[in-house]
């Protein structure tokens, strides 16, 4: 390989992020969006959830859950802008906005989970 391109890295994050978004996020949406508020399942108390979220493995899980789908969004939105709006000439700006946005979102998620 001549010049090192980072496309494979972002594609991998996109790909793995798609799997996470498709398989794991619906579970959370179902639990916290429907089952708990509608009383289908008895929700755990706030204290129990907080204690659970503070476990290192759960923190790591939540970090992956927040970060990877953002990279999935970034890659897909980048190509949606290219092909849908045909603004490939704004390449640098789009890359900054999409992958940059995902990186910022990842940092924010990391900070929030760290400071739980």
């Amino acid at each position: 390989m001549g010049k090192r391109s980072f496309v494979p890295l972002f594609w991998t994050l996109f790909s793995v992020g798609g799997v996470v978004a498709a398989f794991l996020i619906p579970i959370h949406l179902f639990l916290f969006g429907l089952a708990f508020p509608l009383g289908w399942i008895q929700p755990p108390t706030y204290e129990r959830l907080l204690a659970l979220a503070r476990l290192p493995l759960v923190r790591l899980y939540l970090f992956v859950l927040c970060s990877l789908p953002l990279f999935h969004w970034a890659h897909r939105f980048r190509y949606t802008l290219y092909d849908g709006l045909q603004v490939k000439h704004l390449n640098e700006l789009i890359i900054l906005g999409t992958y940059g946005g995902a990186i910022v979102g990842t940092l924010v998620a990391g900070y929030l989970l760290w400071s739980l």
Partner: peptide, 13 residues
């Protein structure tokens, strides 16, 4: 092919 190329990229990195 994308999967193969991505694995190759990580290896070369």
């Amino acid at each position: 092919y994308k999967v193969d190329a991505a694995i190759d990229w990580f290896k070369s990195f």
